[in-house]
Design a protein around this nucleic acid. Structure first.
Length: 453
DNA sequence: CTAGGGTTAG
């Protein structure tokens, strides 16, 4: 085998940067030369390989690199490297390892600041480790003095738990400690208020943030408020906020417009939807697939299947193609209206139209056929589903098997048991039910193989 | 990659 050529540290970094495969990058990193002299790695090459291994969740290999880095004496690693590692562990839901990395930072001769502390706080929030989060925050002064970002993470941790009272306590504490709230602080609080439908209160806070704290509302503030007002059916106020965004040159994107469109449908003002679409066109905001899906969903709710189909067909000629959700919405709506034929036709047409049905599509079809008492068809779809490795919904399975028992269709029940057993999709209760139904009546079945039971 | 948001299916 040809020996690997030695690389200069500069060349090694360049090669690492362009190597997409993390395993090959690791090989490159570990074997940069053919002689046995210690290799003069650069900090950049460490940074590159750590990033690649972290993104690939190759944590054992990452730890190996870190242990090498710990022995380096020619330079001091930057704190940002450890921030990255903490975040990789957090995203992989490994809070203990994230904590461990934080503890180890000093042993790399790297000073720990509020930056890595905040990364750790946010990592614990990502992992939903609220107790650990609180414990770190309470002892925070031992490491560093909390800044506005630390407080924002804590406020957000209470917001995700719908504990706005504690969020406000944090807000008070930060002011006592002379940490000035910023636009993130207010958008987090406003989002929390809107989520608990205290939209008017949220609007008041938007006024106060400018008047009292001299912080201008951001895109995030508007997005939350518009959603909030749509939810409480105050469409006029939602539109007023959108106009204010345009006035203040805060970018209005298609998601904001989509919120407004679905809001209009919800209050039965579907005639105004076209006006919104025209405005989007006028200001150069292109509707995306989600916008069109909102239209399909809205028209379906109005039982205007003709219009919904029109949108779907229009999408097929556009750059934003219909996705699996477009079809699922329409199929579900057909079933709800008892239009079983239309629903199954569209479902079966999906592959030809270039869209693969997903587990949700199958669940919708099973549920729909079951409601329509198309029991043989349910069994057929279940078979296809199990073959594709999609898990049927447990409650639907139980309902179906119960129904077959009640109907006394033991033959079909037996078939369904065979299908579902392949994917191990039968729970204990349904097994008991099926076994007792079939075994107490097996002489009625026109086949004899019940050995599998 | 120290912090925040909104849209469509189940």
């Amino acid at each position: 085998m040809e020996k690997l050529k030695p690389f200069s540290p500069f060349r090694l970094s360049a090669l690492l940067r362009q190597q997409k495969d993390p395993k090959l990058a690791l090989n490159l990193f570990l074997n940069p030369n053919s002689n046995n002299k210690p290799y003069p790695y650069s900090l950049l090459s460490y940074d590159l390989i750590i990033t690649k291994l972290g993104r690939a969740k190759m944590f054992d290999e990452l730890e190996l690199i870190l242990s090498k880095l710990k022995l380096e004496t020619r330079f001091t690693p930057t704190e940002i490297i450890f921030c990255n590692v903490i975040t990789y562990y957090a995203q992989a839901r490994l809070p203990e390892r994230a904590l461990h990395v934080f503890d180890e930072i000093p042993s790399f001769r790297c000073p720990r600041t509020v930056k890595s502390l905040n990364t750790l706080l946010n990592g614990l929030l990502i992992c939903r480790e609220f107790d650990k989060l609180e414990r770190v925050f309470v002892g925070i002064d031992w490491f560093a003095s909390p800044d506005v970002c630390s407080y924002n993470i804590m406020i957000n941790s209470y917001r995700v738990r719908n504990d706005m009272e504690s969020a406000w306590k944090m807000f008070d504490e930060m002011r006592e400690r002379r940490v000035r709230p910023n636009e993130v602080t207010f958008s987090t609080l406003i989002t929390g208020l809107c989520a608990s439908l205290k939209v008017k209160e949220a609007l008041r806070l938007k006024k106060d943030m400018t008047r009292v704290y001299n912080v201008e509302p951001t895109f995030y503030v508007y997005a939350s408020l518009i959603k909030g007002f749509c939810e409480i059916k105050e469409l006029n106020l939602a539109f007023k906020l959108k106009d204010e965004m345009l006035e203040k040159n805060v970018e209005v994107d298609s998601a904001i417009y989509t919120t407004l469109i679905s809001g209009l449908f919800k209050v039965g003002r579907k005639d105004e939807v076209v006006v919104v679409l025209e405005e989007m066109k006028r200001i150069g905001c292109l509707p995306n697939t989600v916008t069109y899906n909102a239209l399909i969903s809205g028209y379906c709710a109005e039982k205007r299947f003709d219009l919904a189909l029109e949108v779907l067909n229009e999408m097929e000629g556009k750059t934003c193609k219909p996705d699996v959700i477009s079809y699922n919405v329409l199929i579900k709506a057909y079933f709800n209206e008892g239009k079983i034929r239309e629903a199954t036709d569209l479902f079966e047409d999906m592959p030809r139209r270039g869209c693969k049905p997903d587990v949700v599509s199958y669940r919708i079809v099973v549920q729909g056929l079951l409601s329509g008492m198309k029991l043989k068809e349910v069994a057929f779809i279940l078979d296809e589903m199990v073959f594709k490795g999609y898990a049927p919904h447990l409650l639907t399975v139980n309902k179906f098997m119960n129904l077959l028992c009640e109907e006394g269709d033991l033959e079909l029940l037996f078939e369904v048991v065979n299908i579902l057993a392949k994917g191990n999709y039968i729970d204990t209760n349904s097994w008991t039910l099926a076994v007792s139904a079939i075994s107490s009546n097996y002489e009625l079945l026109d086949f004899h193989d019940v050995s599998m039971l």
